[in-house]
Simulated scan of single mutants.
Amino acid sequence: MNDGTPAHFDRPVFLLGSPRSGSTLLLHTMAQAPGAFTIGGESHALIETIPGLHPFDRGWSSNRLEAADATSAVTRELRRRFAASLRDRDGAAARGPVRMIEKTPKNSLRIPFLDAIFPDALYAYLYRDVRQTLSSMIEAWSSGLFRTYPRLPDWTIPAWSLLLVPGWQQLRGLPLAEIVAHQWATVTTTMLDDLDRLPRSRRIALAYDRLLAEPRATMEWLSGAVGLGWDRALEGELPLSATTVTAPAAEKWRRHENEIRAIWPIVEPVNARALSWLEVHRVTP
């Protein structure tokens, strides 16, 4: 559809994953690729201040957005906002067709919407060990630093944190670990269902542990897979993400081991699907 918007975007890359999956680290690392443009962070306000896109405007349903939400007016405005905010690794503004790299966990619930606005977009799913992810999500909720909707109607404590999933109303009164388990399972299922509807050539996957273990090889592979180059050394360990709550460690999840064991039946089948999807769609560096 020609919406009258100048063609500023060439195959934007959306980095997808559940909250606390390591996607902030991936974004800031990938932003170092020559020719890559980002808005420097996440697009919460950029998207949700467009009338009709905030959960409040939608009866507090969720962060889910469908293709029908990408009206001509919304499409023009969102493309304009992204184009105005994009910068490359040297701080230069976008001019002409650009390769945008975008990461916001809520986008994992918005693939049909994004695909209607950016029909040539590519999608990269970042998988992190679900035990580590759940532990980090519990930590995020408990920290009070990730409260997204503190005035969510008919929701008590703890204040709602991270993305708002469809069916959140059924989570009222559950223990925090169960809320987090359903949050992870819902976003992952929704995302994989949507990705499976896209052409195989537009979806790839990578593992967070491989990014940490072999950052340069992983970035060379990923950048090449989406049509970008790579010219950075990335010697040694990658720096901590700006959203890190406590220092990462491979076994840190064991702080919540008993809680994770109790909620494992909720996440186990979805995790099995995610691991299978990762094996099918990744190419090891």
Rank of each mutant, 00 (worst) to 15 (best):
Gly4Val: 03
Thr5Ile: 12
His8Gln: 13
Phe9Arg: 02
Asp10Leu: 12
Asp10Phe: 07
Val13Trp: 00
Leu15Met: 12
Leu15Pro: 01
Ser21Ile: 01
Leu25Asp: 03
Gln32Ser: 11
Ala33Asp: 09
Pro34Gly: 07
Ala36Asn: 02
Ile39Asp: 02
Ser43Asp: 11
Ala45Gly: 15
Leu46Val: 10
Ile47Tyr: 06
Leu53Asn: 04
His54Asn: 11
His54Trp: 06
Phe56Thr: 13
Ser62Gly: 05
Arg64Met: 14
Glu66Ile: 11
Thr75Leu: 08
Arg79Lys: 15
Ala92Arg: 15
Ala93Ile: 03
Ala93Thr: 11
Ala94Glu: 00
Lys103Asp: 01
Thr104Asn: 01
Asn107Asp: 13
Leu109Thr: 01
Arg110Ile: 12
Asp115Lys: 01
Asp115Ile: 04
Ile117Phe: 02
Ile117Ser: 03
Phe118Met: 02
Pro119Ile: 01
Ala121Trp: 02
Tyr123His: 06
Ala124Met: 13
Tyr127His: 13
Arg128Glu: 08
Arg128Trp: 09
Gln132Glu: 15
Leu134Pro: 06
Ser135Tyr: 09
Ser136Trp: 07
Ile138Asn: 02
Glu139Met: 12
Ala140Arg: 00
Ala140Gln: 05
Ser142Ile: 06
Phe146Asp: 14
Trp155Phe: 06
Leu162Trp: 03
Leu164Met: 06
Pro166Phe: 02
Gly167Met: 04
Gly173His: 05
Pro175Gln: 06
Pro175Met: 03
Pro175Leu: 08
Glu178Lys: 06
His182Cys: 00
Gln183Pro: 05
Gln183Tyr: 10
Trp184Gln: 01
Thr186Ile: 10
Thr189Glu: 15
Asp193Gln: 11
Asp193Pro: 03
Asp193Phe: 07
Arg203Gln: 12
Tyr208Val: 00
Asp209Pro: 04
Leu212Phe: 09
Ala213Lys: 07
Pro215Glu: 06
Pro215Ile: 05
Met219Cys: 15
Met219Glu: 10
Glu220Leu: 09
Trp221Ser: 15
Trp221Gly: 15
Gly227Val: 04
Gly229Arg: 03
Trp230Asn: 02
Leu234Trp: 07
Leu234Ser: 08
Leu238Phe: 04
Leu240Thr: 07
Thr244His: 08
Pro248Met: 06
Ala249Asn: 11
Lys252Ser: 15
Asn258Pro: 12
Ala262Val: 10
Ala262Lys: 13
Ile263Lys: 05
Ile263His: 04
Ile266Glu: 00
Glu268His: 14
Glu268Asn: 12
Pro269Asp: 00
Val270Arg: 01
Arg273Thr: 11
Leu275Ala: 10
His281Phe: 08
Thr284Cys: 11
